[in-house]
Design a binder for these strands. Structure first.
Ligand SMILES: [Mn+2]
Ligand SMILES: [Mn+2]
Ligand SMILES: [Mn+2]
Ligand SMILES: [Mn+2]
Lengths: 220, 220
DNA sequence: AAAAATTTTTAGATTTACCTAAAAATTTAA
DNA sequence: TTAAATTTTTAGGTAAATCTAAAAATTTTT
């Protein structure tokens, strides 16, 4: 059984490992809003418990058990987000913080029944995949909107930034999950992207375009 | 903002104060499964925070703020229990432990929306009243089944014991909330009570009869 | 291949919620 | 109204998760 804190470390390491092979102390500290010294302390503890492999100065990797534990927390986080949006009518930019708390409730039965109640959803309100009870989920193949060329089209299926500010901005522009889009222009001056939606045309900055994930319909 | 532990102390003090005027250190310790010395430590802390009034050796009482905080936790506990039973199909004997965790999730918005989602229930699965968002609830006037006389009738509206063993036992006997009952006999030998239900007759021990709460239809 | 910069670890404290053992206060019984 | 029993508090410590400051290792630059 892991503490609330240990669970958060495991989850953070898991997410960082999705981007970099070897997860560094400083990166964990930044993500956890704590100090590198504290991270070193915790890493040692997790290593003692067999949840991470650790060699001094070499960063950490999750063990099989550590990884499964992390995936289970991610599963809970995302299922609760679906609950909040689908059943309690929260907006997609309002759910993350509450889910951060709910993900630590320890009851296998609770999560299985919640999963069933929600109709075994495959993705959370941000398009992130929800692992099943065995920890399995399809590795989704997204393309960043910024990488599309003029004329390319596709469907918005995810976001790689979960801040409320960013999500509210997308909402206002009408760029929500499931929307069909086509790149109509890329501005030379600032790299901003002109996007054609079914009913209107919107312009987004490069920064925004980087964090919108598209499942492509292929090049035009 | 209170810690998880502080919240549990406040709730325990609140529940003990429902039965006794002045809440004693040892009683809190027993309820919290901890030691009296630890209770003294925590009481001092709660007193410093203005959540309890405390005079050495004289027991504790909740302040207005302390009481409101406690009631809010009770509200959350009971709403989550309703959710678990009504929406996730848990049995009434399976919900308490999970609710003990869920009651500490801190989000006013979450609880208001949950309350609405559940249809603003007035009582939890054990018949206990659910405070509204202002902390108000009707003080229910129950009679213990053991206090009824032969011929008296009424409706089962609560239980004063929440252990899984007890609740499962009632379930098996068909003595669930809302059931109409009438006392048909009280055995001289062991004080056990013979109860007439709409479709059958059951016998329960004095011990069981003590913990069933009846809203009486008046004497026969 | 040094020197400089960066990253990571160690050492030593702090805070929170506990604990045990012993002392002090209060309550109950003789 | 003493003595005995019970309750409560104090004193002194432990374990978990943090922190700051300083030392050590690694990486990057010259
Ligand atoms: Mn989230
Ligand atoms: Mn999400
Ligand atoms: Mn309960
Ligand atoms: Mn209940």
């Amino acid at each position: 059984m892991q503490s609330y804190t240990e669970e958060n470390y495991l989850k953070t390491i898991y997410h960082l490992a999705e981007r970099t092979t070897n997860v560094q102390t400083n990166a964990i500290a930044e993500q956890m809003q704590t100090k590198p010294a504290s991270v070193t302390d915790m890493i040692k503890k997790l290593a003692d418990k067999g949840l991470v492999d650790y060699i001094k100065y070499q960063g950490v990797t999750l063990t099989e058990i550590g990884k499964n534990t992390a995936i289970d927390i991610v599963r809970k986080h995302r299922l609760w987000e679906v609950f909040l949006v689908d059943k309690l009518n929260f907006k997609w930019d309002e759910v993350h913080d509450v889910a951060e708390e709910l993900e630590h409730i320890k009851s296998v039965e609770l999560i299985e029944r919640l999963d069933e109640f929600l109709g075994f959803p495959k993705a959370d309100p941000h398009g992130d995949p929800i692992p099943d009870k065995n920890g399995r989920f399809a590795k989704t193949q997204f393309i960043k909107l910024i990488e599309l060329k003029v004329g390319d089209s596709g469907t918005i299926t995810g976001v790689s930034q979960h801040s409320s500010a960013f999500l509210k901005h997308l909402e206002k522009l009408g760029l929500t999950l499931g929307k069909q889009i086509q790149i109509s222009d890329v501005t030379d001056f600032d790299g901003s992207v002109e996007i054609k939606l079914s009913d209107k045309q919107v312009n987004i900055s490069r920064e925004v375009a980087k964090h919108i994930l598209i499942s492509s319909n292929g090049k035009n």
